[in-house]
Design a protein around this nucleic acid. Structure first.
Lengths: 139, 139
DNA sequence: CAGCATCCGATCGGATACTG
DNA sequence: CAGTATCCGATCGGATGCTG
């Protein structure tokens, strides 16, 4: 009985596909930037504390202030994953108490520019999307 | 006792910030495209079944085949949210059994182009990021 | 000041089974 | 064929408390 069921085939396809997805750069990138705070951190570091200036390094506490609602845990977690990917650098200055500052790398800067494109799309089409949603919900 | 604690202030800031985030177009956009299948659906509809052609409408089952590992639930859910946002159209042809096809709207097409930029960044920098991660993990 | 550990609720996504 | 409903595990993100 070589009954290969549809479920079997799907299971196999899924395994294959998961492997593909895991290697897929687009998926990895999306996973990277889709965190709740990632884009905001990139934005803060890439546009300065007022979100409309030049890139410049920021201290942990400055970031915490700019990203008003962030918990220490998520800020830390976000920054470490960005550091791991080589998108930001972490610099420790051994003052008392210690000072830590974060800065975009060139790689991070280039991603920031790309993300800004997305942001522009969002700003340009926000109203259209909202209108579509309301039309859809009303129908 | 007007002891406004740091926690109080943070709670307030958080409420404010959550409201801001909810309205923030960037956040909404990220929430939109960061679903596991959203980018893949956009990509399939925007580049044809071989992911390297012209945009063209696809049937539900075609999408299911292209996105090999997707469950019916997530495919449906993803498509409906995209439809709600006015990024895809859903067309029902009353054959027997019914035929449903999905197609990018102009809005969806413009988002697809933006997402492709991200994808290009990912492909161009995948190796650099992977190398950074390995260096980080080894250290 | 910076960051980690723990606990917990909310949400996401998958498996399965069922309807028009 | 297309879509829905339910259940469940995994993950995400927040709150709190503690360390160097």
């Amino acid at each position: 009985m070589t009954t290969t069921t549809a479920a079997d085939r799907r299971a196999h396809a899924k395994t294959q596909y998961n492997a593909f997805l895991a290697a897929c750069p687009s998926q990895r990138l999306l996973a990277r930037i889709s965190g709740k705070w990632v884009a905001l951190v990139l934005s803060a570091l890439g546009s300065g504390p007022d979100c409309d200036g030049e890139p410049r390094p920021l201290r942990n506490s400055e970031l915490a202030r700019i990203l008003a609602g962030v918990s220490p845990k998520m800020l830390s977690q976000t920054l470490r994953s960005l550091e791991r990917d080589g998108l930001v650098t972490r610099t420790v200055t051994p003052t008392v108490p210690v000072t830590v500052s974060y800065e975009l790398t060139d790689l991070g800067l280039s991603l920031h520019r790309t993300v800004r494109e997305l942001k522009r799309w969002a700003e340009a089409n926000r109203d259209a999307v909202t209108a579509n949603q309301q039309r859809y919900d009303g129908a």
